[in-house]
Amino acid sequence: MDFHAETMSSLGQIQLHAMSELEEVVIGNRQPILLPLQDLRLSSLPKAKLVWRAMFPNTLRELKIEGCGAIDRLIKLEGEANGSGETVITIFPDLHTMVLRRLPELKSLSDGERILNFPSLKTIKVEDCPKLTKLMLVADGLKEIECERSWWEQLNWGDERTKSFQHLYKPMYID
């Protein structure tokens, strides 16, 4: 089962919850749709993968994904070839909050060598994402990374991009 958010035209929020057979969430189309979308929440979707098409809602302000066991990367852009070498791309210029919880297969924020730029991002919350070991992103306005100490300590601090966020740790739980 797939969910295609192609025909909805004036939504501020999409929330998909507890859909055990949903295999793919496709956001965007070839036409500019969902432009007013500001809040996307996906939870308890054990089989779902997330795919962003060429035209997608770049007005997103809050992204919350939790309990989606099949998601291995946050951004999979459909129809774009991965070039060689690092490429920095801005997908969500207005995103200020990103919450990633209980994503056991999440290894990366993006496809291949793409580095995501989040110019408005202020807060990232990460909980129970054991395979996410690098923060390959650009977020000059980032104020805090709220997470479990165990996850923070297993990050790859040899990676220069990840290292630039060392001072932003905020404990999720009292250690």
Score class of each variant (00 low, 15 high):
residue 15 Q to T: 11
residue 121 L to W: 04
residue 36 P to S: 05
residue 102 R to P: 02
residue 91 I to M: 09
residue 16 L to A: 00
residue 35 L to Y: 00
residue 21 E to H: 11
residue 32 P to D: 13
residue 47 K to N: 05
residue 165 F to H: 01
residue 158 G to M: 06
residue 165 F to E: 01
residue 51 V to C: 07
residue 170 K to P: 02
residue 125 K to R: 14
residue 124 I to K: 03
residue 5 A to V: 06
residue 150 S to D: 14
residue 157 W to T: 09
residue 86 E to K: 15
residue 87 T to H: 12
residue 139 A to C: 13
residue 167 H to A: 10
residue 148 E to K: 02
residue 170 K to M: 08
residue 7 T to G: 13
residue 47 K to E: 01
residue 101 R to Y: 10
residue 164 S to P: 04
residue 9 S to C: 10
residue 12 G to E: 10
residue 71 I to F: 00
residue 128 D to Q: 13
residue 111 D to F: 04
residue 81 A to K: 12
residue 40 L to Y: 01
residue 98 M to H: 04
residue 166 Q to W: 01
residue 143 K to D: 15
residue 141 G to K: 13
residue 66 E to Y: 03
residue 97 T to G: 13
residue 102 R to V: 13
residue 101 R to H: 11
residue 67 G to I: 08
residue 162 T to S: 10
residue 21 E to P: 11
residue 48 A to L: 03
residue 31 Q to W: 04
residue 63 L to G: 06
residue 5 A to K: 01
residue 152 W to V: 14
residue 1 M to W: 09
residue 37 L to G: 01
residue 159 D to K: 04
residue 89 I to P: 12
residue 106 L to I: 11
residue 33 I to K: 00
residue 73 R to D: 10
residue 60 L to Q: 06
residue 94 D to P: 03
residue 37 L to Q: 05
residue 95 L to G: 05
residue 31 Q to S: 12
residue 118 F to C: 03
residue 169 Y to N: 12
residue 157 W to P: 03
residue 152 W to R: 08
residue 42 L to Y: 05
residue 22 L to C: 10
residue 174 I to L: 07
residue 52 W to K: 00
residue 100 L to Y: 07
residue 74 L to Y: 02
residue 128 D to L: 14
residue 137 L to E: 09
residue 122 K to M: 12
residue 62 E to L: 09
residue 115 I to F: 03
residue 115 I to Q: 05
residue 144 E to W: 01
residue 159 D to L: 10
residue 90 T to N: 07
residue 53 R to D: 04
residue 28 G to T: 05
residue 52 W to D: 03
residue 108 S to M: 12
residue 99 V to R: 03
residue 139 A to M: 11
residue 58 N to I: 00
residue 59 T to E: 12
residue 153 E to A: 04
residue 169 Y to K: 03
residue 137 L to D: 08
residue 167 H to L: 07
residue 139 A to L: 09
residue 126 V to C: 11
residue 27 I to Q: 01
residue 23 E to S: 10
residue 19 M to A: 08
residue 78 E to L: 11
residue 65 I to W: 00
residue 32 P to C: 13
